[in-house]
Amino acid sequence: MRSLAPPLACLWALVGINAATASEPVSTVRIEQAWARATPPGVNVGAAYAVISNRGAADRLVAVESTLSEQVEIHNSSQQAGRMQMRPVAEADVPAGGRVVFEPGGSHLMLIDLKRPLRQGELLSMTFVFANAGRLTVQLPVAPIGSTQAPTSAHDHHH
């Protein structure tokens, strides 16, 4: 009997580890440094930025929604033949252990048909929809028009 104790302990440990892994939330996707930019009056489009980090298996950002705009498009920007070109893409891959960066002058989230201009200092609610991680709702602080970085008071707003 005594000789069986060590292997049994090992087995228990293994089961325990497995159980712990299984009970962890599936989502390992986090949204960090999310912010939006104030928009001038009369213009019904805007831009939002964020860093999506993924500590787990590969996932996909399949949609983004906002309470203040009819639509949110995921845009890739690139220089083509001397022109800055931005194109909507249906979804963005969030690689395992990797990051997706939306930033000024690069890929960004375009808010289309804003119901009203975005005002500096307010919070904009946006929902990021992932194929595996599901829906993550984030409050984005609104930075001044044209600002190239998140408002200084911005912390990581995430759920």
């Binding site: 930019r37 001038p40 009369g42 213009v43 019904n44 489009v45 805007g46 831009a47 845009h75 920007s77 800055m84 931005m86 000024p104 002058g105 960004h108 375009m110 808010l111 001044p144 028009i145 044209g146 600002s147 190239t148």
Partner: peptide, 16 residues
Amino acid sequence: FTRCPDVCPTELFKLS
């Protein structure tokens, strides 16, 4: 153009 969400505000803000 004014419906340019990213590049134009970035550059005009820089010029300001």
